[in-house]
Design a protein around this nucleic acid. Sequence first.
DNA 1: GTCTTATGAATGAATG
DNA 2: CATTCATTCATAAGAC
Lengths: 199, 199
Amino acid sequence: MQLRVLEELFRKGTETPSTSQIQKITSQLRRYGNVEGKNVFYWFQNHKARERRKRRRAGNIEESASSSAQGLSKAKETNCSCGELTEDQESERKDNERRNMDYLQIISSINTAATTSSVASKITQKIIQLPSSSSISPQLNCKENEDDNEDPRTLELFPLNKKDDVGEEDNNKGLISLSESKSKKFCANEEEVSYHQFF
Amino acid sequence: MQLRVLEELFRKGTETPSTSQIQKITSQLRRYGNVEGKNVFYWFQNHKARERRKRRRAGNIEESASSSAQGLSKAKETNCSCGELTEDQESERKDNERRNMDYLQIISSINTAATTSSVASKITQKIIQLPSSSSISPQLNCKENEDDNEDPRTLELFPLNKKDDVGEEDNNKGLISLSESKSKKFCANEEEVSYHQFF
DNA sequence: GTCTTATGAATGAATG
DNA sequence: CATTCATTCATAAGAC
């Protein structure tokens, strides 16, 4: 039920409630159970982010494109066109089109390509990454090569779900919210990756 | 097969691919069947988490002792410390009843209400979040007890956290705190004040 | 038939 | 806002 209220609000344009709004919402929701302000806050944060991603259909039905996997010039225009950061950028990365690449090749190409992102956060936590060359395969279950294209056991691992998403009815959103055009100064943007737009 | 690719990548160090990596991987995997970016994303999330959890289950020499022949079945940390937690009545927060104001009303009231930033005391304002009174315990099992008016399905959407910590194997890394220096800087006035007042 | 496990999906909770 | 982690739900596949 609480969900209903929250969704309703969200739908109505309250995507990022201000603190006062959060307080109100919270107190209203408390009728249905105990809720703290932070719950509401997080809910909106997450919901907004995830909704937005969802909108960016996963797919990329791109297949025939071409281009070496490497390059990877990551040309995001995340520049400071300051004032507005429309993160909406979509990577139009054309992929290579070699169809029958062996999977090892696939792997290597992927590995070489990126890796550049979030390095920063890596250090704080994952310094201890296993040596990439780790030949340790704990229990590498050596599957006998069923080289036909599917692993029997995990077969068809991603069941096609194709839940259609709704459209936009987008927002003129909260007139209320912060806006406040913060002096962001120069956003000397780092290469900020917009995480999934997959959902 | 897709699994092979994914496992390979994972093994090679790609534990949490960035979006661009995910896209690449996805498009590569699509040769074998339809896959969406989110599938890949989820795969890595889950795989990583589960790998780690398994690993985590190592140092526990703990009491696996003789008694439990059952062995490793799910003892887990679900920690129903059920034993105690007497669930005091005082937390009788559920003054619910008759509070069935229609949720639409709630919504409208919230929408109309806010917007008033009342700048004055904003910055120092601190919400008096009362500590949820430790109320209800999550009782994992025995869910049937829903006499409550909650809708089973949407239910307690915000499960009260507050869980006591687990036992620690690697515990406190607290000692590192030395260089905090957050330099919060007084940016005076901003509306966007820390939402962290909720925490 | 039920129980158990593996795993995709989802989401709350942080942190930067 | 982006990213990440921890939990939890649902369900298919096997085991019993």
